[in-house]
Every structure is written in C-alpha cells, then in structure tokens.
Design a protein around this nucleic acid. Sequence first.
DNA 1: AAGAAATGTGAAAAGGTTTTCACATAATGT
DNA 2: ACATTATGTGAAAACCTTTTCACATTTCTT
Lengths: 332, 332
Amino acid sequence: MPTINDVAKHAQTSISSVSRVLNNSGYVREEVRRRVLKAVEELQYNPNALARGLIKNKSNTIGLILPDILNPFFAHVARGVEDTARSYGYNVFLCNTDGSIEIENQYLKVLEQKRVDGIIYAASQRGSQLIAKLKDKGTPLVVLDRQIECVDIDTVHINNYQGAYMAVNYLVSLGHRKIAFIGGPKDIQSAVNRENGYREALQAHGLVIDEDLIKYGDFRYEGGYEGAGMLLAGKKAFSALFSANDMMAIGAINRFVEAGIKVPDDISIVGFDDIPFAKLIVPQLTTIAQPIQDMSRIAAELLLEQIEGEKKSSREVILLPKLVKRKTCKEV
Amino acid sequence: MPTINDVAKHAQTSISSVSRVLNNSGYVREEVRRRVLKAVEELQYNPNALARGLIKNKSNTIGLILPDILNPFFAHVARGVEDTARSYGYNVFLCNTDGSIEIENQYLKVLEQKRVDGIIYAASQRGSQLIAKLKDKGTPLVVLDRQIECVDIDTVHINNYQGAYMAVNYLVSLGHRKIAFIGGPKDIQSAVNRENGYREALQAHGLVIDEDLIKYGDFRYEGGYEGAGMLLAGKKAFSALFSANDMMAIGAINRFVEAGIKVPDDISIVGFDDIPFAKLIVPQLTTIAQPIQDMSRIAAELLLEQIEGEKKSSREVILLPKLVKRKTCKEV
DNA sequence: AAGAAATGTGAAAAGGTTTTCACATAATGT
DNA sequence: ACATTATGTGAAAACCTTTTCACATTTCTT
C-alpha cells in the first residue's frame, strides 16, 4: 500500500507539500498540486487513517452500544445513528451487549483503546456507574432512551408517560370507561412510565383504577396472550385494552379472537411502538408511534456537536410520541 | 490519557519492558512485571490501538457492508457477524449502503483508509467490479448471500432453489396440483433461484406450469396483496400458493381473507424466510426458514481465517433451508 | 528602488506503540 | 575456572501522518 512518501517521490516534491494539497492547508503552487493529484491517482493512494488519527488525536469513529440489533427498535436506532454519522464523515462501531454488563464493560474498554471520538449509549439501565466513569474521562457521550440519574449528560428520549396518557385519553374520548392494561416488566423504566401515564390519565378523567384490570407481561407476544387470558378469566367486564407495547397487543388480539371476542366490536385495543407489523395485521393496530429514528438522529447530532464544537451545557431532548389511529378501536 | 511512557516512568522501567509485559513477549523479571501491572492499574492505562495498529499493520476491525439494517434479514446478518467477530477480538464497522452504489464506493474507500483487516460484503448485486478490485488488492473478503461471478472468492449463501423446491414438494405431497406462485423482482438473484425451484419442482412431479398462475411482487406486503388480487381476478382455479417471501405471503393471506377465502381451508400457503412474525399471524405461516445467523457466523469465521491464517484456496459454503410446518397448509 | 507582505517549500518533530539489537547479568555445562 | 546458554534490559528505529518553523521567492506598497 503506497504511503505519502511514495506520492511525494512520484510527484517530485516533499511530503509536506503532498499533505498540504491533500488537506487543502497552506500554500501550494498550482503545478505542484496538479502533479500531486496525478501521483495520487496513479498510485491509488489512500491515506492511512490510523497514522492520521494518531497525530490528530481523532479517529472519526463513534461507538454505538445497544442490547440487540435484532430488536427492531434498536435496528431503527442503528439506522438513524449511522445515517447521520456518515453524513458527518464518521464511522460507527456496532456493539451488541445482549444485556450483559460484562460485554458492555469489555466494549467500553476496547472503544477507548480504539480512541473513538464519542459514544452513543442505548443499553442497560444499570450501567450508570460506567456512564459516570465515561463522563469523568471526558468522553463525549449521549444517552439514548434511558433514564440516567447523574446530571450533566446529554440525553434524548421519548415521553412514554405522555404516550400512554394519549392512548388512554383517546379510548376515553371514544366513550370507554372500563379500560384494561397490560404492562411491561416493572424494572424497565419506560414500562413504568407507560403505566403511570395509564393510571394518571384514568384519574384525570375521574375513572376508577381497577387493579383487577391490570396485568403484566414481558413485552413479548406470549405476555400479551397470557395477559389477555387472565383478563378474560377475571370475569370483570372491560370494553378496551391498552397494551404497553405492540407485541403484547398482538398477542392479546389473538387470544381474544380465539375466545370468540371481536376486535374492535367487542373490545377496542391500543398498542405502543408502531412496529412495522402493526399495520399488517387484521385489523390494523391502533397504536402510539415512537419517533425512534428522529430520536437517534438527534442523538447523533448532539454527540457530533459535542465532538466538533466546544462542549456546551448538557441538554435533555424529549420527543413526543404520536397516536396512529387504525382499525382496532371503536366508539362505544 | 496516559501513554506507555507514563507507565514506564511510574514503574521505574523502560518502555520496552512495559510493552513486553503487556504483550507477554520476551523475558521480564517477575518483580518488574508486578510493578508494571501495578502502574497500569493505577494510571488506568489503556493502550492506543491506533498506534498499535499503525506499527503492526493490523486494526482488529472488519467492515460489514449491507443494504439496510432495518431489514430483519440483515439485522440477523449483523448480529451473527458481530457475535463471532467479538469472540475473536475484532470490532465491526456497520455500513448501510441503502442500495446506493455511491455510498458503497464511499464506504469501501474509507474502510481502506481505516485499514480494516477484512470485509464482509452483503450488499448490491452490481458491486462485482468493486469486489474484483478489492480482491486484487488482497483485502480479505467474504461475500454473503450474493452470487458473484468472479471466482476465487469466499462465498456463503443459502440454497434458494432448494428451498423453493422443498416448498412446492411439500404442497404436492399434500395433494395440491394447481399451485400458484408470487415471485420477487427478477433482477434479484435469490428471487430467480426461488422461481426456478418452483418451476422445476412442478416439472419433476409432471405438473404443468401455468404462466397465468405466476405473478411477481416487490418482496413487500403490498406486492403479495396485489399479486393475490391478480390471481383471484384471473379466474383460474388454484388450491395452493407458494410465495417467494413471507411478507408477500402475509399480504396474500390478507387479500384472500378480504375476499372471503379461507386459509388453509380453501387455499394452502407456503412462504419463505421465516420472519419473526410468521408464527404470530393467524393462522401461523408455514414457511421455508433460512439459517441466516449460521450463515453469517460462518462468513465471519471464513473471514477471520483468511485474516489470521495464511490464505487457503477459496471456499463456497451453501446452507440448506428448512421447511417449517405450521398452520397455513392443508391436505386436499 | 527598497521594504513589507504574500506565496511557496522542505526538514524535522511529534504522536504512541512494537520490535530489533546490543549489551548485561545469572545459571548451566564441562 | 571458563565457555555456553538462558534470562533480562533499554536505546533506537520503524510505522505514516500532520504541523511547525525557518527559509526562499515572488508580488505589492509607497
């Protein structure tokens, strides 16, 4: 692989001049520039980013830490981050942690070795000590969709509380009074925020919160299926269901259909996430859409601002979800 | 950030000795080793991979080029590649090309600049000149799920022909004689292979190929929906449908249901891919499963063998898909 | 015409590591 | 006791850039 030295020889000039034309810095005679460009072309010279990074103390690389790219939510995150990183001339290291704090630690270490210019962190709840440590080192950092207690960190997330509130509000506006809920795991912050939104929306409308109409699942299809089964077994009447995510909503729908209950005629349903399949099932799922890709674009932009500009005071960006009305809700 | 020099001073020894203990190379007195390790710990020293890469001419990094991580197929690819790369001590650069040859070129260039140790290529069909160029440069390379004409390149893909053949074979074994087909875009190799499998399976069973029962879609939900509509409008009787992918199969099912046609009672359906949602729709979709993650694991392993071992003769690995029987097929 | 400013050039240092080499000491073989 | 061998150490070169600095030449002011 040719080096800048080879180019200099071939163009009959010095290394310095080659560097100058390549970086458009300083003065260089037009003829020399031409010769250099020609040499670059002929030798197919492609500068060594390792050497460049070493001396400039900059790698034009960022790390993206997330639990699992197979989860469509994080695939969107990756897409959004990669898109804007590329447009700024950065590459992104993909780091799946699988939820393991060990892998996370390992990655944090090697990302530092590779001298990434910044990190976008969208992984475990518990990693907050790690986060604090990173912050101490001064590594540019943006935390995505995670509640982080320590202040002074750029953060962008979605208002889950508000989204749930909107869902319930919509159901109430359709005339529903008995609205069941299937929530997510209690140790996931977004899940509890959605539950709070549900509860407070009911209260705001002067409706009673019936604990028998509240079940919990694991955010997976089976959780919704089973939750719906339990609601049915409970014998308490309800005319609507708000599910804390779409997967469980779909599970619930299938459980209802099995029981001969019609959606939306007998029961109205609102999900959360707007996964791609929400509009492919029959009936199409009414749900709360999260602007994931916007979120990750903004996260990447915040990070790159941190990297390229001087550090400003840290920011918290909160995006509003959106109600997508489709076919699983009906007036009562 | 502390350097090896700082560690040497702190441990009262030379740079060379520090390097030796860090790399477990050469002789070093036990006490010195202890002092060095202590210094590393105290200073939180983390070696600069850029400098290391520069001198060793090795980055412990690979590039993964694919069209779009949002496509679950490629999300699986990414996951498989990243997993095995990590286990070998490598990082992966995520490169979405969005199908654009320009972005692809851009990425190829910057990956070379960053001196990646190898590339896994799972993007456009047309990139074969690029591929040849890479090959010429001697960059370790594995091509994933793409038919590449130029020889002497490690390749791993799935036998789409065989998968389609299995699907049709299964339908025939259930007694179906009039089997419709919705294919993918004709300029995608895997799509034409699936079509060939369909055709030759019919012939092998002595069944006529009725061109009126063959429609084409875009591999998306809408394509299947419309294809099914056209089949219905065609007035030719058929008792089964093989769809070249699951998304279109789901579109077709929904179109059939809309028309009051029952699946599987009136029409049996087999898809292709086994996307996560295949088992969540009602009725659960019978389909041909691709061992995507196996494929990408193997690809990564081939690449790392190329990188770490001396280059052996190039290999082509072909994986067999699997028929997953669920609820959309019925004996006739 | 002379001094000042603008333009242009190359040598050398710096960035942080690994590796080679020369040398020094300790252990072993005869 | 002396020659080998094994063990241990540090200086310096190498990897490929960018950037600074000193110097040389041209162009512009007055």
